[in-house]
Computed example of a mutant assay.
Amino acid sequence: MSLVVSFGMYDWPEARAASDAAWADIRPGLLVAGLAAPARLVRRNRDLPPVPGGIRAPGGRLLAPDPAQLAPDDLDFTAV
């Protein structure tokens, strides 16, 4: 499983430098605590790892499509 992090609702173009700085401040503390933390924020579907067959619930019900099948330059929170 690949972990991703996004500040999507706060990551407007004019605030991206601040979002990157916030993640740069948060990430080291997570790593010191022994938690996995991605190196960078996800800003578009193409940054997400592919999930062949889509994201599924334990019973097999489709929750979201494979991010690789979504518009690459968007970040579709309602689909993923």
Rank of each mutant, 00 (worst) to 15 (best):
M1H: 07
S2Y: 04
L3G: 03
V4W: 08
V5G: 00
S6F: 08
M9L: 12
Y10R: 07
W12M: 06
W12K: 07
W12N: 01
P13N: 07
P13I: 08
P13T: 13
P13Y: 14
P13D: 09
E14S: 10
A15T: 15
A15I: 06
A15F: 15
S19D: 11
S19K: 14
D20V: 10
D20P: 01
A21Y: 00
W23C: 00
D25G: 11
D25Y: 12
D25L: 13
I26H: 08
R27K: 14
R27G: 09
P28V: 06
G29Y: 06
L30M: 11
L31S: 00
V32S: 07
V32N: 03
A33Y: 00
G34K: 05
L35V: 08
A36L: 03
A36Y: 08
A39T: 12
L41V: 07
L41M: 05
R43P: 02
R43K: 11
R44M: 03
R44H: 09
N45G: 10
R46H: 08
R46C: 05
D47V: 09
P50E: 12
V51Y: 02
V51E: 01
V51M: 05
G53T: 11
G53K: 03
G54W: 01
P58E: 13
R61Q: 15
R61M: 14
L62P: 13
L63W: 15
A64F: 03
P65T: 03
P65W: 01
Q69W: 13
Q69R: 15
L70E: 02
P72T: 03
D73E: 14
D73A: 14
D74A: 07
D74F: 07
D76E: 13
F77V: 12
A79C: 04
A79W: 03
V80K: 00
